[in-house]
């Protein structure tokens, strides 16, 4: 029983960062309609901001969260302005190749600047642990989960309750009508894409504490984030949270209860997605 509770807790905590990375991606896909292959590189920039600030000035990653959010928002905004905007009406495949090119560019720029080494930050609370009646978990993953949840709730509130959020949703649903309503589509896109990048940047700072910073840190998470967004259904931001939770839970259960399960985690993750996608497609009609 205790093992089961601990496993469920592990799953829930892991879901937080998944959901955060995926939500950013969902914004870009859902609102701007861009499948952004470079999302992982935005995350990587966040991780390096955290590493560089820590290595050079000893600045705590908690502070870097804000810095990275702003910095990566700007990177996202610039990318939107310079690269995405010109191809907004181009075929989807062209947009994908463009963001893939951006991903290759950013990743290798980081390689050139920082080398392929894995780098770590060392805030004092990194290994801190909380115990609760036989259950035990890390302070950092717990805080990251909490923060992810807060950010997501904030995002839902923004989209559901504010004028600007309404504009974003309007644009997401219809690309023509908002113009008629006097909503500046371009500005909404800029905002949404920047926000999407900022979320990735924040996740990057979290990962720099929990994992590491390196030019390739974004890759694994982005792949999974894509899968989560798609499983939730494009444009379904709330679904992202549930999809992340379900998948993280499946991973935790398999690697805890199946002997040798650690090697099957990826397969189970993608098997669940495959099953959900195909099952849903056959259920319609």
């Amino acid at each position: 029983m205790e093992l089961l509770l601990q496993t469920l807790l592990n799953g829930v905590l892991a879901a937080g960062v998944y959901a955060l990375v995926a939500s950013g991606l969902a914004l870009a896909v859902g609102v701007v309609g861009i499948v952004n292959f470079a999302h992982g590189e935005f995350l990587m920039i966040g991780a390096f901001v955290s590493y560089l600030l820590f290595a050079a000035r000893g600045i705590d990653p908690l502070v870097s969260l804000g810095v990275a959010a702003v910095a990566v928002f700007l990177v996202g905004a610039i990318s939107y302005y310079g690269l995405i905007r010109p191809v907004l009406s181009a075929p989807e495949l062209n947009q994908m190749l463009l963001t893939f090119g951006l991903s290759v560019l950013l990743q290798n720029l980081a390689l050139l600047l920082f080398g392929a080494d894995t780098r770590v930050v060392s805030p004092p609370y990194q290994g801190a642990t909380l115990s609760l009646g036989g259950l035990s978990f890390g302070v950092v993953p717990f805080a990251a989960f909490g923060l992810s949840l807060l950010i997501l709730l904030g995002l839902y509130w923004f989209l559901g309750r504010t004028r600007l959020g309404f504009a974003v949703r309007a644009v997401a649903q219809n690309r023509l009508a908002p113009g008629l309503l006097g909503i500046e589509t371009q500005q909404v896109y800029l905002l949404a894409f920047g926000l999407s990048a900022a979320l990735a940047g924040i996740a990057g700072v979290m990962l720099s504490v929990m994992l590491y910073a390196s030019p390739t840190v974004g890759f694994a998470y982005t792949l999974k984030a894509f899968a989560i967004v798609v499983m939730a259904g494009l444009g379904n931001l709330r679904g992202v949270l549930w999809a992340a939770l379900a998948l993280a839970m499946a991973e935790a259960l398999v690697s805890t209860y199946v002997p040798g399960g650690g090697g099957w985690v990826e397969a189970v993750f993608f098997l669940v997605i495959f099953a959900v996608l195909t099952w849903r497609s056959w259920r319609r009609t």
Partner: peptide, 8 residues
């Protein structure tokens, strides 16, 4: 990467 971007 730059070439891919410019190509598009």
């Amino acid at each position: 990467g730059l070439i891919l971007i410019l190509a598009i």
